[in-house]
Nucleic acid binder design. Structure first.
Length: 499
RNA sequence: GGUUCCGUGGCCGAGUGGCUAGGCAGAGCUCUGCAAAAGCUUCUACAGCAGUUCGAAUCUGCUCGGAACCUCCA
């Protein structure tokens, strides 16, 4: 089996993935800012890196997955909106900052569970690591890469760039930044306009504030990720992930801070997911085109014709490679919903398939065997090729007709060997459930409902033996109105499914 | 303006030199009390122009169109 290759944003190429300590992987992913409700765009990195987390474990690694909660708000470096976002909204909503943060943290966790994302190993909060951030800032000052002005501390980018490759990750050139940085307020506090804040002095009206060697204030824009990744994953760790829009300045600044403190580039592999777009434009608050997760799940949005389940959205996201933009539309989600349903039903059918007991070796179709084996083994190759879930799903769909044909008797169950059948079952369950993280939705309620439906199936069968089609049709039609499809199978059995 | 990226069939999307991606939608057929599902078949594209090559969606150049980042942003 080929080894895992990942696209490293830091080098802009695919590289063989090897962890610093064999068998152990440290991964840091930029988490949510819990100052508001998550939207579809936010779902992408968390689903993407959940699959990466799952796959790394599937390969036998012990993974420490750290994903932060930004509950202190991010700030503009300085500027027109120089107040803490969270405290600002707290004032508007007349809520305690921590109450607001708690509310949106809970909502975020709720959405993550809906998506069947595994919990990170550690989910540190920014407010819980003020001490670590202050310590880190002190160290940067000690290294003489930061300076204090009026109770605020700034990182000296120009000096850093003289000794380190500033801009390597994001492809920025310092001189260009000098020319294109816009004029901001409080610019006079900084030696150079591209310097960024490590600590900001808090104005009197600022609610969130902490004591520091430089007076009362709050941490700057990027320091929390540097502090927390260092604390839980060490001076250098394996993977750092996040959305492409964080490349600059967030991750670039993170590299600068951590490098000064730890004398190492913090992460060896930088992985970035692309954006979700809507009509070709990035989905984002500033574009006023977001669809919140609660709106997606309820269907309560002008662009949506119906609710979409979390698994549909997960599947929709995984049908595209994580480094490509993904264009949202109601139609595309409907297509994803149907596709997932077809794939999942085939998976359920596969689990029920059995070969006849009389082991007729002569009946085995070698071409079919070879084809299935290749399609299955390629799944590993695709995942190893920078987590190409789109190709994984495509191959699984190629197997769907084979499964259904066997079930319907179009292909004899004897034409595949027991080994191949078991291989199919193993690959499907491993990939769909363990790696891609898909699952039956509402499994608990379904168990009870299934009992009720089994009863109706019995009654309908009896009616049909009496040729009482009025009753049999009534059952089927009424159920259909409730969104439950009852189907008559070839062998006289009945099955049902939910729309 | 600077940097980077993209433009694939009705829609969504893989694919980086030769071989059919896949999903959804559409059409036909089979199965069937009817319906649904399923199976089979079908439609089969690569923004435009020029070039490299035996051969290009894939490499090069130009043109047109779009996007991201440079400001909070997943």
């Amino acid at each position: 089996m080929q080894s895992l290759q990942v696209h490293n944003s830091y080098t802009r190429q695919k590289e063989l993935f090897t962890s610093i300590v064999p068998g152990y992987v440290g991964m840091y992913v930029c988490g949510p800012t819990v100052s508001g409700e998550s939207h579809l765009g936010h779902a992408r990195p968390f689903i993407t890196f959940d699959v990466i987390y799952r796959y790394l474990m599937h390969l036998g690694n012990k993974v420490r997955y750290v994903r932060n909660i930004t509950d202190a708000g991010h700030f503009e470096e300085e500027g027109r909106e120089a107040e803490d976002k969270i405290s600002k909204k707290a004032t508007i909503e007349k809520l305690e900052p921590m109450e607001l943060v708690q509310k949106y943290t809970n909502l975020f966790h709720w959405a993550m569970r809906k998506f069947n994302n595994l919990e990170p190993s550690i989910e540190p909060t920014a407010t819980g690591h003020i001490v670590e951030q202050i310590e880190m800032i002190k160290k940067i000052i000690h290294e003489r890469y930061a300076y204090e002005t009026n109770g605020s501390v700034y990182f000296d980018v120009k000096k850093y760039a003289e000794h380190y490759p500033y801009g390597k990750l994001s492809g920025r050139i310092l001189d260009d930044l000098l020319e294109t940085s816009r004029e901001l307020e409080n610019q006079h506090e900084k030696r150079n306009r591209q310097d960024f804040a490590l600590w900001k002095a808090a104005p009197p009206e600022h609610i969130m504030r902490w004591e520091s060697p430089w007076g009362e204030g709050f941490p700057g824009w990027h320091i929390e990720c540097s502090a927390m990744s260092t604390k839980y994953l060490g001076d250098q760790f394996d993977i750092h992930g996040g959305g492409m829009d964080l490349l600059f300045p967030h991750h670039e600044s993170e590299i600068a801070q951590s490098t000064v403190c730890n004398h190492k580039v913090p992460a060896r592999y930088w992985l970035h997911n692309n954006m979700i777009t809507i009509n070709g434009k990035k989905m984002g608050k500033s574009y006023n085109n977001v669809i919140k997760l609660t709106e997606l799940f309820s269907g309560d949005h002008p662009l949506l014709s119906q609710p979409f389940s979390p698994m549909t959205i997960r599947f929709f996201i995984l049908q595209t490679h994580y480094r490509s933009t993904l264009d949202f539309s109601n139609e595309a989600l409907q297509a994803a919903e149907k596709g997932l349903k077809r794939l999942w039903e085939a998976y359920k059918n596969l689990q029920k398939l059995e070969r006849p007991v009389d082991d007729n070796a002569a009946a085995i179709d070698n071409n079919l065997e070879t084809k299935i084996a290749k399609l299955l083994h390629d799944l590993d190759e695709f995942m190893n090729d920078d987590f190409n879930t789109a190709k994984v799903l495509a191959n699984m769909f190629e197997i769907v007709p084979i499964i259904n044909a066997i079930r319907d008797g179009h292909i004899s169950a004897s034409s595949i060997s027991e080994e191949t059948l078991q291989l199919m079952k193993k690959y499907f369950s491993t990939y769909l459930e363990n790696i891609l993280g898909l699952r039956d939705e509402n499994a608990a309620e379904l168990t009870k409902l299934n009992g009720v439906l089994d009863l109706l199936v019995e009654i309908r069968k009896e009616a049909r033996t009496r040729k009482d089609y009025a009753t049999s049709d009534k059952i089927r039609n009424q159920l259909q109105q409730l969104g439950i499809l009852m189907k008559d199978e070839k062998d006289g059995k009945m099955s049902y499914g939910f729309e």
